[in-house]
Write a protein that binds this DNA or RNA. Structure first.
Length: 294
DNA sequence: CACCAGGTACTGT
DNA sequence: ACAGTACATGGT
């Protein structure tokens, strides 16, 4: 069992903010389990201490959880107004992860136009169908398959991905091709705009998914993915500013993303993740049928 | 049955 | 470049 000092860190918010899909929480022990690649990590936070135990000794916990980011600096940088500051304060310690490019790309291709429970289910089916059986500390599961392992299209179609199956299959071929054009070091040589253009060449990767991958895996912290939640939150919080920025154009997701990157700056992705998690966790208007009055 | 879910690809203008 | 539209699947 390792222990590292993790100040300015919120394990729960980081794991539960929709950046990764293969995790679970054991309320009896207080430990989270995260599956990444072929590694299983069990983690628990108590104050500034992060306890962890990994199946794989080369799994870099600190890097994976973004603990190398200069938190004070980036928080100061994105704290532009009271709206974002309130979201930061509600989830202080939330970190942007650095996941493996292939697993992150595959996961967010699967995520598009879907919902989180089903995304988790689909990824689990892909792992069970193509991954290797893994076992650690009582946790039995499957590794996330290497791209080369996803070699049977009809089997992939049975994982419930719908029309995304062919996107994932084609993208697996690219990642498994043996050249390293989508590797972390190669991609880090590019500018944000170049890296995004490159990601969007992959089938099933559009503006939003590309930004998720650039942010959650390649470390482009200026990436600002705009999904329906962020679009609503941004128009609600910054409607008039966005309309000025749009200069007559429709405030599309692309316009909102452009506004956000110029407004929040080089760590805009962190602002996005605070807003997203805040929107997801804030009390929502119940859609339940009204209770009749006595 | 309609509607929604961390959108993307394709088409026509 | 931008607006419209189809798209697999499963839950409410």
């Amino acid at each position: 069992m390792g222990i590292i000092n993790a100040s300015d860190f919120n394990l729960k918010a980081t794991i539960e903010s929709g950046q990764l899909f293969r995790h679970s929480y054991d309320s009896r022990s207080g430990f989270y389990a995260v599956i990444a690649g072929d590694s299983v990590a069990r983690l628990r936070q108590e104050g500034d201490k992060l306890q962890y135990d990994c199946s794989n000794s080369d799994f870099g916990v600190a890097t994976f959880f973004g603990l190398n980011h200069s938190y004070g600096e980036l928080i100061k940088s994105i704290s532009k107004d009271e709206k974002i500051t309130a979201a930061i304060n509600r989830h202080y310690g939330l970190r942007i992860l650095q996941q493996s490019p292939w697993e992150c790309t595959a996961s967010f291709i699967i995520s598009s136009f879907s919902n989180i429970p089903r995304i988790r289910q689909c990824i689990g089916k892909v792992a069970a169908a193509f991954g290797d059986s893994i076992e650690f500390d009582g946790i039995r599961d499957f590794s996330f398959p290497q791209p080369q392992q996803i070699s049977n299209f009809s089997k992939l179609k049975k994982c419930g991905l719908g029309y995304r199956a062919k996107y994932l299959f084609e993208t697996a071929k690219v990642f498994g091709s043996g050249n390293y054009e989508y590797s972390l070091p190669q991609m880090r040589k590019l500018s944000y705009a170049e890296a995004k253009e490159k990601m969007m060449r992959l089938p099933g990767v559009g503006e939003k998914v590309a930004d998720c991958i650039l942010l959650f895996s390649y470390g482009f912290l200026e990436a600002f993915p705009v999904d329906v939640w962020i679009q609503r939150a941004m128009l609600g919080n910054y409607g008039s500013e966005i309309n000025s920025f749009a200069a007559g154009r429709k405030p599309s997701e692309k316009v909102v993303a452009g506004f956000a990157r110029s407004y929040f700056g080089e760590y805009a992705g962190y602002a996005q993740q605070f807003l997203y998690h805040d929107a997801r966790t804030s009390p929502r208007i119940s859609r339940a049928a009204p209770v009749p009055l006595p």
